[in-house]
């Protein structure tokens, strides 16, 4: 592994720079290369599951169009992080203003997680796309194309990214291990593929963490997954369900401080845990708890206080646990 004094995340370090390096999504890549050849492109909509190469394709396209200086011609926005459509409008306006040297008459705005925008915000986005169409092309990236409003879809050339095939993911992981001089086992790489469900970024992240333990073996892969998802949340759930309410509350406080978790973070992790086979509760109770968690999340979104709400949730779980055990007993 790296002998140098610094290291990056492999998901970025081994991100293909140019369209030529992209190994999957052949049909899409072919069409994108055509745009490069013609030095022109329409607005684009990249849709597909996470980790299938949407952002990579967008960045590679920009790289091939503009050359090594491509960053100057690209504005990257993430709809989940921008505070409202007005901010997006002013950023695009500012970006589109300056004229370009060279033979390409437009710049590119990459808008990631566009399907997280409300329908109203998307309407406004449509107007922005029209307003700056002479100087700017948009690449919209989304997980679910159905969540993009019709008028935007009709203005974009649409590309559907399909889940990556197992052999593609495994061979890419193997190639990275060769670059890094890391020993890896075939079954471990296959395990990574299963866990990451065809999400290349997730797969590479797990690979890097497993490699940090030494060789990439199946047991190291599982160890990484265990380390990445702290057991604390499950223990807190178990404590509450055993009726040890005060203990579970104190553990929760400690966890929130050490990891800086917000109430919503905790709720999401709890939600993951309740469907795990390691939590021994009747099946219908999992649904009951999901309902509790959902109600508490709703209250937090309404503006209530994280800790009070989580404490109230733990009290409900403690009561629920008592009812279950009395039914059994």
């Amino acid at each position: 592994m790296s002998k140098s004094v610094s290291e990056l995340l492999w998901a970025e370090k081994y991100r293909p720079k140019s369209l030529k390096e992209l190994v999957n999504q052949e049909e899409i890549v072919k069409r994108l290369m055509k745009f490069v050849e013609e030095r022109n492109m329409p607005h684009l909509l990249f849709a597909g599951p996470p980790g299938t190469g949407k952002t990579t394709a967008a960045l590679a396209l920009a790289h091939d169009l503009y050359g090594e200086d491509w960053r100057k011609y690209v504005l990257e926005l993430n709809a989940s992080d921008e505070r409202g459509i007005a901010v997006i409008r002013s950023k695009v306006k500012e970006f589109a203003r300056s004229k370009l040297p060279g033979d390409i008459p437009f710049k590119i705005v990459i808008l990631d997680e566009a399907d997280n925008m409300t329908a109203d915000a998307q309407q406004a986005l449509r107007r922005i796309m029209e307003m700056f169409v002479e100087t700017t092309r948009f690449i919209l990236i989304a997980n679910f194309p159905s969540k993009i409003i019709e008028p935007i879809q009709s203005r974009c050339a649409s590309f559907r990214f399909t889940p990556l095939k197992k052999e593609d993911v495994v061979s890419r992981l193997k190639w990275i291990c060769e670059q890094e001089n890391v020993v890896c086992h075939q079954d471990a790489l296959e395990t990574i593929y299963e866990i990451s469900e065809g999400d290349m970024r997730k797969a590479i992240n797990i690979l890097q963490a497993a490699a940090a333990l030494g060789e990439v073996t199946v047991s190291h892969v599982y160890k990484v997954v265990g380390l990445a998802h702290p057991k604390e949340i499950r223990e807190i759930l178990n404590l509450a369900l055993q009726g040890k309410f005060i203990e579970s509350r104190d553990r929760l406080r400690e966890l929130m401080v050490t990891y800086g978790l917000s109430g919503t973070d905790v709720l999401k992790q709890m939600h993951r845990e309740i469907f795990s086979a390691d939590l021994k509760i009747p099946e219908d109770v999992r649904v009951t708890i999901a309902d509790y968690i959902g109600e508490i999340q709703f209250r937090i979104v309404e503006g209530a206080d994280d800790e009070i709400q989580l404490t109230a949730l733990l009290a409900k779980l403690a009561l629920l646990g008592k009812k279950i055990s009395s039914m059994k007993g």
Binding site: N78, D81, D112, R201, N205, I206, V224, P230
Partner: peptide, 19 residues
């Protein structure tokens, strides 16, 4: 660094880094 949203960074990357 990774061209993702901060919420994805929190949910996906921070746990891996922690490991």
């Amino acid at each position: 660094h990774l061209h993702i949203s901060t919420s994805t960074a929190k949910a996906e990357i921070i746990p891996i880094l922690r490991a």
